[in-house]
Amino acid sequence: MLSDIITPDLFAAAVRIATPLALAAIGGTICERSGIVNIALEGMMLVGAFAGVVGALATGSAWFGVLCAILAGALLALIHAFASINLRTDQVVSGTAINILALGLTGFFMEVIYGHPGTTDSAPRLMPVFNISGPTEGVLGTIWTWINGVFLSFTPIVYIAIFIAIFGQWALFHTRWGLRLRALGEHPRAADTVGISVVRGRYSAVLMSGALGGLAGANLTLEQVGSFTEDMTNGRGFIALAANIFGRWTPGGSYLASLLFGFADALQIKLQLFRDVIKIPSQFFLMLPYVLTVVVLAGVVGRAVAPAAVGKPYEKG
């Protein structure tokens, strides 16, 4: 029974589900570290998912789709950056507007381009990177199934996300870029005083988060689902924000938190198969990430402290 539940594909599913969350969460980390709240990750992911499919369908190249997704996410982020940095609009309000805008733009252009609402045709997809055949029999076979399933069965963006998490973690705490980014979010005036451009720094951070949100969307459509459905992100951008908090505003932490949320979701899907034996409703597993986030915010497991200047517009004094 337990060996039916705890299988390589359970862990593989957790990693797959975690990937878009992690990419967006790291986007949120970078953005908030620079002092800009980004609740528009949901919309950036949605636009990325759509642009990815449009690009891939138009050219037949999934990688071109990925490029379109990244650009679309960044383009939407540009609006957020302009509103938050130049117009000093309330960042949460601007983010809310962008989420609604993304819903409208994707739905509208879906009908304009494909002539119908709902779901697009299947687009070319990115295939798993490795395709190695190993032993199938005996103990070696079991070991190989685990190694292959948990580490080698994934599509490119899954590995890209892991790389970004590790590289981002290092860069945030061990490079000049990271130090400057953190300074912008903690004490922009001090950063300004020593000659760091707050405007340029924040713009690049917001654009980066949009690009990551777009990439997360590309992972959804071009690797997981294969087509675009209206509102398909279904709150993932908000779970990503939660993962960013859960991961204490660090890229590595964001990835691990996403993995935890992904595991809860994968387990929930798996347990549906054993509905007759295990009588815990799936909804309670689905609630788990949100309950955990509230628990973290409540300070039950240590304090979650946001960058000090997050959400505050900066005016050059």
């Binding site: 989420n99 609604i100 805008l101 409208g104 733009l105 879906m110």
Partner: peptide, 21 residues
């Protein structure tokens, strides 16, 4: 397409929030 009303809604929020415009 009906979805254009979401675009209108988003723009309304935008312009009210960024009231300098």
């Amino acid at each position: 397409p009906q979805k254009v009303i979401f675009i209108i809604q988003a723009l309304v929020i935008f312009f009210v929030a960024a009231d300098q415009i």
